[in-house]
């Protein structure tokens, strides 16, 4: 199990563009969208890191931008990392899919697409998971549904 500093050093050497914000509960790494796939690929394949278990993948809408958040864990070493990608384009957010690395990502990404409208490149089956095709993206903060949601 590597500690935060060791992980930071290794990841910096792998992808120099990464940022590591301070004061977070877990180790977080913010990566540009174009380096996202290659970072996760390296995180998974690196012998010392081997982040082979994708715990969860989700997104957060901050109105100014959106974040895709992945929680990765290494089954062998038990260290945990949070990978974040900031997407400034809220109209048409696009990011690479992790399905090739983690099969479970296929469904996490479908859920994100369903609820946030973030598109995933190279996704084998990007369809909505829960809702109808014309429903809108309910977890976006500017989502309004006068009929079903009562604002308080």
């Amino acid at each position: 199990m590597l500690n935060k500093q060791e992980l930071t050093d290794i990841i910096r050497s792998l992808i120099p563009e990464t940022e590591f914000p301070d004061g977070t509960q877990l180790l977080e790494v913010i990566v540009p969208a174009e380096k996202y796939f290659s970072l996760v690929e390296k995180l998974k394949s690196d012998q010392k890191l081997s982040f082979n278990y994708l715990i969860s993948q989700t997104a957060v809408d901050f109105l100014s931008h959106m974040t895709v958040v992945c929680h990765l864990e290494s089954v062998e070493f038990r260290h945990l990392i949070v990978v974040k990608v900031l997407l400034t384009d809220r109209e048409n957010p696009t990011i690479d899919s992790l399905t090739a690395l983690y099969p479970t990502a296929e469904y996490f990404e479908r859920e994100i697409f369903d609820l946030f409208g973030i598109r995933f490149n190279n996704h084998p089956n990007l369809k909505r998971l829960f809702l109808e095709d014309d429903y809108g993206y309910p977890l976006r903060k500017d989502f309004r549904d006068e009929i079903n949601i009562i604002e308080r």
Binding site: G23, T24, Q25, I55, S56, V69
Partner: peptide, 18 residues
């Protein structure tokens, strides 16, 4: 303000709250 992540073991597996 911040982000918090916790996991517990339910009867069916890992429940993580973010």
């Amino acid at each position: 303000a911040g982000e918090y992540f916790r996991r517990v073991e339910t009867a069916r597996g890992e429940l993580a709250v973010y």
